[in-house]
Write a protein that binds this DNA or RNA. Structure first.
Length: 562
RNA sequence: AGGGGCGUGGUGCAACGGCAGCACACCGGCCUUUGGAGCCGUGGAUCUUGGUUCGAAUCCGAGCGCCCCUGCCA
């Protein structure tokens, strides 16, 4: 049972537990989950893992997953984020249908549950200041002391709590606390605050409330109200589970099972909302959707596909081990997805001109080149003009090449993709010794990039006709941070010291004319270079493309090794 | 130190008392009108230590290491 369930996806400890519940009948075979983001920032790839687990668990068992804004703290939340969150989850391919909820819409019911707790003597109004409360809480090793207000009568508590709601007391002056155990080794059980006074305008409930429930109280109740069966969350809430259970038991309400899993971490980036917000507000990046950000909006703009992210999460797996996933797996998943779907076009990122001396001046040949060379079944193609003067990549030529260099050098012959073989006959340099022009001769019999004499041509280069080339701004991205773990910082420094100053490299490329009509939102493979997608900054006169990920380059790797 | 959790190749995940496997990364080779893709292959792991057992990554004991918890944040 723990191997596979026919859909080819590995099981994990969560699904094993759901299986057990289904065997025991604890939830009558039902599976209802929820994704409960707090709308105080944009979603990132770490959230994608939680979304994946919540929605896939529901799908796997024929249940459903709710989307619920966990909006119990009006001082930190913004309505803009609510739209962004929904957009990003839909982009990932998940749908909550008509089950979009706010914890804030349960405020009245949650309030009534609090009253019930008071009535059974399980909660009390406490007048301790925040500072005093800290002192009364005790430490990790010493038990806390009971609040002097702990034994107030039920009627006094009822009265005081009602007056808290009515706005009679200033912010911070009183709280409602669960009466549990000040000596508990689990600090969460030492009479936790469940309601605080906040005279804050709430983006959903306006000024209806001046008291707001804490997460620990609102979350189990919201789950219970929605009939959630499995409340899946990250590891740091493990210590809160006893509290979650305590509220459900005290109130004798539907009792979901909370299950914790480890968060996703990624090498060469940061994942906390606080840090991402800092990158945005301090303008180290252009915004939440900067293509270097691990946010879903950033990854979408970068050219990531939902399918690639899904494959990545599936490969990465689910466990309770604190771990850091290698970003190279993410990149592999993107390449694997785009390899199959991206049309192939030609762009020269760092152009140098080649003059084909024996090619007729003024002649323009149109080559029909398939767009999907990876799929011979697909006959879509475009016309690519070829002329006497073309651009190739500067590093596709070496005057004194090392061994095993297959590209162009004096006297060697290479193939221009789907065009001709050319042989280098010489170079022109400027005074500083830089190559400004390469001369070559072509073989007319190799038209289409193939000769029938069995000649072996090792190197194959992409090219663009100089006269027809379109200038395109390319944004080449590297890792945002230059160390695998940016959170590992020297004493007195912050993660910002690890920012990679070269994470964005803007170049002007020469591309074939076809790209003038590029389809927005479509990833293209620039042959031998990488996958690119048009950026929203593009205008008709000034096309801009983002590099989603470079192709693997074994020659560059070989060179780097020396 | 009290409580909660977690330790399997470089990384991430499997193996649920019975030959430690998969993916990425790494390295080598084949192939190629993308030095891409694809194909084949090499190397490399059970935190330590006792015990139970015919047999332990798995069960038990002890230890070690790492993460989380002293918000009126979530």
């Amino acid at each position: 049972m723990s191997e596979e369930m026919g859909d080819g996806v590995r099981s994990n400890f969560i699904w094993d537990m759901v299986d057990e519940h289904n065997v025991s009948g604890r939830f009558g075979g039902k599976v209802v989950t929820r994704f409960p983001p707090e709308p105080n920032g944009q979603l990132h790839i770490g959230h994608a893992k939680a979304i994946y687990i919540d929605f896939e668990t529901a799908r796997r068992y024929g249940g459903h997953c709710n989307l619920r804004m966990d909006d119990t703290n009006p001082s930190k939340e913004e309505t803009d984020y609510i739209d962004a969150i929904q957009r990003d989850i839909h982009w990932l391919g998940y749908d909550w249908e008509n089950r979009f909820f706010y914890a804030s819409s349960y405020f009245e019911q949650i309030y009534q549950y609090a009253v019930q707790l008071i009535q059974k003597g399980a909660a009390y109004v406490c007048d301790l200041s925040p500072d005093e409360m800290r002192q009364f809480r005790g430490t990790l090793t010493e038990p806390g002391k009971e609040s002097p207000y702990r034994e107030r009568s039920i009627s006094e508590n009822l009265d005081l709590f009602q007056r808290m709601r009515a706005g009679e007391f200033p912010e911070g002056s009183r709280t409602l606390r669960a009466k549990i155990d000040m000596a508990s080794p689990n600090l969460n059980m030492r009479d936790p605050v469940i309601y605080r006074i906040m005279f804050a305008h709430h983006h959903q409930t306006g000024d209806d409330w001046c008291i707001y429930p804490m997460y620990d109280f609102a979350h189990p109740l919201s789950d219970s109200i929605e009939g959630i069966t499995h409340s899946l969350c990250s590891l740091e809430f493990e210590d809160h589970r006893p509290l979650y259970d305590w509220f459900c038991d005290q109130l004798e309400i539907h009792h979901p099972q909370q299950i914790e899993f480890s968060r996703l971490n990624l090498t060469y980036t940061v994942m906390s909302k606080r840090k991402l917000l800092k990158l945005v507000t301090e303008k180290h990046v252009s915004g939440w959707d900067d293509p270097r950000m691990p946010t879903l909006s950033g990854m979408r703009r970068r050219g990531y596909t939902p399918e690639a992210i899904h494959a990545f999460l599936e490969q990465n797996g689910i466990s309770k081990t604190n771990s850091v996933a290698d970003v190279s797996l993410l990149e592999y998943c993107l390449r694997a997805d785009l390899e199959n779907r991206a049309p192939r076009v030609m762009a020269v990122l760092d152009p140098v001109k080649v003059v084909i001396d024996n090619y007729p001046e003024g002649l323009v040949e149109e080559f029909e080149i398939p767009l999907y060379t990876q799929n011979p079944e697909c006959e879509d193609s475009r016309q690519v003009p070829f002329t006497r003067e073309i651009y190739i990549e500067r590093d596709d030529f070496m005057e004194n090449p090392p061994k095993k260099y297959f590209r162009l050098s004096p006297g060697t012959e290479v193939r221009l993709i789907k065009a001709y073989y050319i042989t280098c006959t010489g170079v022109v340099k400027d005074d500083a010794g830089n190559i400004i022009e390469i001369h070559a001769e072509y073989d007319p019999l190799s038209k289409g990039g193939m000769s029938d004499d069995g000649r072996r041509v090792k190197g194959t280069l992409h090219w663009v006709s100089a006269a027809h080339a379109v200038d395109v701004e390319l944004r080449l991205y590297d890792r945002l941070f230059n160390v695998p773990n940016p959170d590992d910082v020297p004493e007195g420094e912050t993660f910002l010291v690890h920012l990679n100053p070269d994470s964005l490299n803007v170049v002007t490329a020469k591309t074939e004319p076809y790209l003038q009509n590029a389809e927005p939102g479509l990833q293209y493979q620039f042959m031998r270079k990488g996958y690119f997608i048009q950026d929203p900054d593009s205008t008709n006169n000034h096309p801009v493309f983002n590099q989603a990920v470079a192709l693997r380059d074994s020659w560059a790797k070989q060179m780097a090794q020396g």
